[in-house]
Amino acid sequence: MSTLRIEGLHARIGDTEILHGIDLVVPAGEVHAIMGPNGSGKSTLSYVLSGRDGYEVTAGRALLGEQDLLAMEPEARAAAGLFLAFQYPVELPGVGNANFLRTALNAVRRARGEEELDAVRFLKLARAAMKSLAMADDMLKRQVNVGFSGGEKKRNEVLQMAILQPSLAILDETDSGLDIDALKIVADGVNALRGPQFSALVITHYQRLLDYIVPDRVHVLANGRIIRSGGPELAAELEAHGYAQIVAEAA
């Protein structure tokens, strides 16, 4: 199915190379965590995979199933099943959340050759997803992320994910700015999607989120390379000893 396969990925911003050769495989159905100190390239990896402007891939490739992600426009990557939960969800003043969600869903459905949803069927789907995320109905009427608290923004990301049904989700520091209750709700939202058709790359600085979204594998990213991989216990080790020791060992 949709295995993510990253091979020898080098990327730079301007003249500065940030990723120095990433090799990573996330098989379909698995959740992998990427942990690492600030500036290690975690967010760059998420933006390169999702196609944000300003990043130049100088070598390597990234495949989702058979599809060459790096050759595709961002919207085509979304249609192919990739979803990036933003570290800093963007505010869209003047764009209603319901309109946004439905436009996105129908664009993705159209691209996947599926039938578009009318307003009634969409609302039913959205309300059910919101209920499981403990979101108030009025959030559909509000402008996208405008005036949302940090927790509301992150829940809105997970709502979008639940509605778009990606095969691969990249969660970029989704835990930042969340209190423990919101963290649990967000983790429940992600866990609800887990299954053989869904894989995730959970990017985080702290172990805390991984107590709730238990990963199959943990990778440590430092200075643009994955320097160590292991099971969930690696996260606990990092929490106990910090990154310095592992980075020093790898150097």
């Binding site: 919207e75 963007v90 869209l92 764009v95 778009l164």
Partner: peptide, 26 residues
């Protein structure tokens, strides 16, 4: 706004539609 455009496109909205949505919003 480049960030707004990317956010919409990352959700699967084609670039031309994303631009129109932001123009409409403005």
């Amino acid at each position: 706004d480049a960030d707004q455009l990317f956010y919409l496109r990352a959700r699967g909205v084609p670039a031309a539609t994303a631009r129109l949505m932001l123009i409409r919003a403005f």
